[in-house]
Simulated scan of single mutants.
Amino acid sequence: MPLYGTLGMTFMQVPFVPDPAQFSGDVLVTGVPYDMSTSGRPGARFGPQGVRAASANLIWEGARWPWNFALEEHLNVADTGNLLFRHGEPQTLVDNLTAHIDQVLASGAQALTFGGDHYITLPVLRAYAKKHGPVALVHFDAHTDTYSGGTQYDHGTLFYHAVKEGLVDTDHAIQVGIRTAYEHEDHPFEVLDAAWVNGHGPDATLERIKARIGDKPTYVSFDIDGLDPAVAPGTGTPVCGGLSIDTALKIIRGLQGANLVGMDVVEVAPAYDHAEVTSLAGATLALEYLYVLAANNGAGGCYLSR
């Protein structure tokens, strides 16, 4: 058994279905315990187990606030466990992950993937582009991850390669929460930096996001360091001045109506966490996304004070 391949519990205690070909439902969860592409502190290989464990705090609420329905009655979700690959051989991660997501999509489900460092999004997007063509992208992060000077396996270069490979439709891609340096000239994506989002709020942010992505198949990639380290310290490259969890949840919730086809939550590193708050944030963002999918399928809506 490869390192970190053992599954302790499933996300939200959904059924364990190790073979995607045996699943007939809506969403398959996969953990990717890989952090060999980090440039800062390692530890995101333990992110999948951290997010799954923290999800135990969310299972007792039948109809999660502010939604007016119970998720399990409207969305069929299962967990395929952790991806297997040869530790120390990153190319096996690349090959196995793309092949696995191919299987998930072939089953008719979409993928909800827990990293692991952000490099894992590149093999996932390769599978998505096979099915949908270049996808629209909503990317939450402190960093653009479009840097060209990294190594072959580098969590800071994945969107540079994704653009070069034609995996992302750059005319329908937007990055949210950015607060580190990048080359503004010829940058391939629209950027809503963290100061703009924090100053203008979720509604204005959603207006910009929805105008950008339109009705194209849209992939959501959430690097947990998009959140401020005051609320999400458990990550390898923390940057002050990020989003609050309230803002992030309102933005995810507000994606109702968008053509969402997949999501990942990456860079949760439990070793640097306090009281599981980062793992809980990752689990909650993922759960909110699932409620949005169910609402898009006609399950119901939100009870929100106006």
Rank of each mutant, 00 (worst) to 15 (best):
Val292Asn: 09
Asp215Phe: 06
Ser305Cys: 11
Leu71Gly: 06
Leu58Ser: 11
Asn96Ile: 04
Gln22Ser: 15
Thr278Lys: 01
Gly149Met: 10
Thr247Phe: 10
Val231Cys: 06
Val104Ser: 01
Leu75His: 10
Asp186Glu: 11
Lys216Tyr: 13
Val268Asn: 00
Leu243Ser: 09
Thr218Ala: 02
Pro123Thr: 09
Ala269Trp: 15
Thr278Pro: 06
Asn82Lys: 05
His161Tyr: 15
Leu3Met: 10
Ser24Trp: 02
Gly282Tyr: 00
Gly115Lys: 00
Thr92Gly: 12
Ser148Tyr: 14
Leu97Pro: 04
Glu276Thr: 04
Asn76Glu: 14
Leu287Tyr: 13
Ile209Tyr: 04
Thr146Asn: 15
Asn57Trp: 04
Leu93Thr: 08
Asp117Ile: 03
Ala299Asn: 05
Phe114Gly: 05
Thr98Phe: 00
Val77Leu: 07
Lys216Asp: 10
Phe23Glu: 07
Val51Trp: 05
Thr237Gly: 07
Asn198Met: 10
Ala295Tyr: 04
Thr151Leu: 11
Ala269Met: 13
Thr80Leu: 11
His118Glu: 06
Arg179Thr: 10
Ile101Met: 00
Val29Leu: 15
His118Lys: 02
Asn68Val: 04
Arg64Val: 12
His187Tyr: 15
Ser148Pro: 12
Leu255Tyr: 12
Met263Ile: 13
Tyr303Asn: 14
Asp19Leu: 06
Ser107Tyr: 03
His172Arg: 15
Gly166His: 08
Ala195Asp: 05
Leu293Glu: 05
Gln91Pro: 00
Glu276Cys: 03
Ala275Trp: 10
Arg41Leu: 15
Asp154Pro: 01
Ala230Trp: 05
Tyr219Gly: 00
His87Asp: 12
Ala232Pro: 01
Gly201Arg: 03
Asn96Ser: 13
Asp79Met: 00
Val124Arg: 01
Leu192Phe: 11
Gly166Met: 11
Ala142Leu: 14
Tyr128Ser: 01
Ala111Cys: 08
Gly226Tyr: 08
Tyr128Asp: 00
Ala129Ile: 01
Gln91His: 07
Arg52Met: 09
Gln91Met: 07
Ser244Trp: 08
Gly242Arg: 04
Leu280Met: 01
Gly242Asp: 08
Ala78Asp: 02
Ser39Gly: 03
Leu97Asp: 01
Leu83Gly: 12
His118Trp: 02
Pro90Glu: 09
Pro217Val: 02
Ala281Glu: 03
Leu112Phe: 13
Ser24Glu: 13
Thr113Val: 15
Val104Pro: 01
Tyr303Met: 13
Gly149Val: 09
Leu293Tyr: 05
Gly5Phe: 04
Val176Asp: 15
Arg208Phe: 08
His143Gly: 02
Glu190Met: 11
Ala44His: 05
Glu72Tyr: 09
Ala136Ile: 08
Asn96Arg: 10
Trp65Arg: 12
His100Asp: 06
Ala195His: 06
Gln91Asp: 15
Leu7Ala: 04
Leu249Ile: 08
Leu112Lys: 07
Thr98Arg: 06
Asp117Met: 09
Leu3Lys: 12
Thr121Glu: 15
Ala204Glu: 13
Val268Phe: 02
His87Met: 09
Ser244Cys: 13
Ile252Gly: 09
Asp246Ala: 15
Ala162Met: 06
Phe16Arg: 03
Leu227Asp: 10
Asn68Gly: 07
Val138Phe: 14
Leu75Phe: 12
Asp26Phe: 14
Ser221Gly: 06
Ala283Ile: 07
Tyr147Val: 14
Gly62Arg: 13
Ala204Met: 11
His132Glu: 00
Tyr160Ile: 02
Asp246Asn: 15
Ala281Cys: 14
Thr113Gly: 01
Val266Cys: 03
His100Glu: 07
Gly254Ala: 01
